[in-house]
Design a protein around this nucleic acid. Sequence first.
DNA 1: TTGTATGCGTTATCAC
DNA 2: GTGATAACGCATACAA
Lengths: 336, 336
Amino acid sequence: MGSKVRTITITDVAEKAGVSKSTVSQYLNKRYEYMGEETKERIAKSINELGYKPNLIGRSLKQKTSTTIGVIVANISHEFSTQIVKSIEDYCNASDFHIIVCNAEDDPKKEKKYIDMLRAKQIEGIIVFPTSTNINLYKELTEEDYPLVFIDRDVPEVDVSSIMLDNKKAAALAVEEFITKGYSNLGIVTNTTTNNVTPRIERVNGFIEALSVNGLEVNGDYIKSVGVDKINSELEKMMRLKMPPEAILAGNDLVLAEILKFVKHHQLKIPEDLAVIGIDDVSYASIYNPELTTVAQPTSDMGKEAAELLLNRIKGNHMERTNYYYEPTLMKRSSC
Amino acid sequence: MGSKVRTITITDVAEKAGVSKSTVSQYLNKRYEYMGEETKERIAKSINELGYKPNLIGRSLKQKTSTTIGVIVANISHEFSTQIVKSIEDYCNASDFHIIVCNAEDDPKKEKKYIDMLRAKQIEGIIVFPTSTNINLYKELTEEDYPLVFIDRDVPEVDVSSIMLDNKKAAALAVEEFITKGYSNLGIVTNTTTNNVTPRIERVNGFIEALSVNGLEVNGDYIKSVGVDKINSELEKMMRLKMPPEAILAGNDLVLAEILKFVKHHQLKIPEDLAVIGIDDVSYASIYNPELTTVAQPTSDMGKEAAELLLNRIKGNHMERTNYYYEPTLMKRSSC
DNA sequence: TTGTATGCGTTATCAC
DNA sequence: GTGATAACGCATACAA
């Protein structure tokens, strides 16, 4: 371990205290019940003097637990991800669990690699932002009864609980706000939906439903799901229509950034020339000019729930698969 | 690990293949030299059929290595931190090392807790954004020859290499840009420097030096290092001076956000009423109105260097303590 | 109340 | 070329 000093073990403590290894082990695990006061003190003293630190690897091997869970985020560059991670960590910290954060970078291969690694390290469970391409891998894990919780996205084919935003409602909130402000030609731009990432699909569906419910016409030209690199050209097309949209809902933070770039480049005014709402309450929403109206996710609650669910599951409380839908919040500002 | 299925081990593979554990172990560790082709094949077959996955905990215990390093970030909410983490991860990934990310939230107690935990888990080394309050802890680690690398901040009292921005130069770049654009009453606002966080101090010093070098007067009223919650009131004071500053350098992303809030609240125009440059190239710099001139850190190079340094150290190449100063880049945009 | 013996899954030594 | 055996650091059943 890099240290030249011989690492000191429970045996050293035992010798120094003049007791056996097992007694020291009992002490470490706070099974004081039948232990003499004097023994306790001698052990405590030896531990201190030797600077003994228990080796968790030894313990893990014996007990087959590691008090550690893994978190595989789809892409750590999203603010959403770091907020969730922070919340998971808070909860785990309070429960004396550790977390290993892995960044799959939207790559199923990397995701698989990390899952394998975490299992090999005897990590007790994983919270995943699933890529939806590793369905068979997820199935394998559930068949082996390996504790797993999804967050942000759902994988219907697999029997795993998922913590999600109520994406339909998020879109509906935005649509209603647009309508309240007097817009009726509404558009939505999201990342590509071809790889079945559920939030994107649900947001588009929620958007369409909300239009219908509010008696507005659905215009296919105003609905685009494309890769981030193609957003700009799609916006070009959309805004050159005879009747361009008056307002656009951005499916996430990256899409929002693309839209703002477009607006800036064409020197449009928000909201006069184009009204905008973004899903995800980006860090600069309230300092942007104009301030950006957004739909916020309760990341803190969502992360906590995911961690709680997983830890309970690890502690043996088996529970049925449930999807948890969290309420989005409209942050009214001035971009609409 | 939660699986009801009995976990299958090297022994099972050995039995099934009709060889001994040692032979299987050799195979796993690719010491094929004296191994019969046929034996290899039988082992490979057994591994496949049984779905055997090596248990890294067992290996760790025996070999006293974990091929894992820890990264303790001061505060994961800074974009800077996630960029660094991403870069470290890339490097480690390529070297088949794993990383455990911990978030100290600027709390030395948490930092200590994480360091203890990582060591107990036999993690082979740590990259830290140091809080500067755990000096004795760092000293202990170096005395035990435990691999450690600092990033972002320096701790002069401790014999550990550090990867940093050339903070003085960063401040100087901003000052020069201000001067080029014709401003001469320059100010700087940073987070509080009372807790000895070196970048903040260096940025202020660099700022002052750059003023002198360029023949400008240093005005103490224009130089503020205060907690984030006090920035607004300090700005109020500063801008109410008979002669307020024409331009302000923001010490980091959080300070920049506060300044932008202030500007917005007072309906000032950037750069006409107040020119602004921020250290840290925030994600919204190029979409803000106006686009924000910033000083960028080469996060990718910095993270890579930190990882490389630590991994080399772990592999035994002892090296003298060195501080690495990385070149900042001025991102010329329109806020100045 | 404490000690002895054994095993967790792996690798390393050395004999065969 | 391959296999017995011990060891890593710890926890636990059982004995004392």
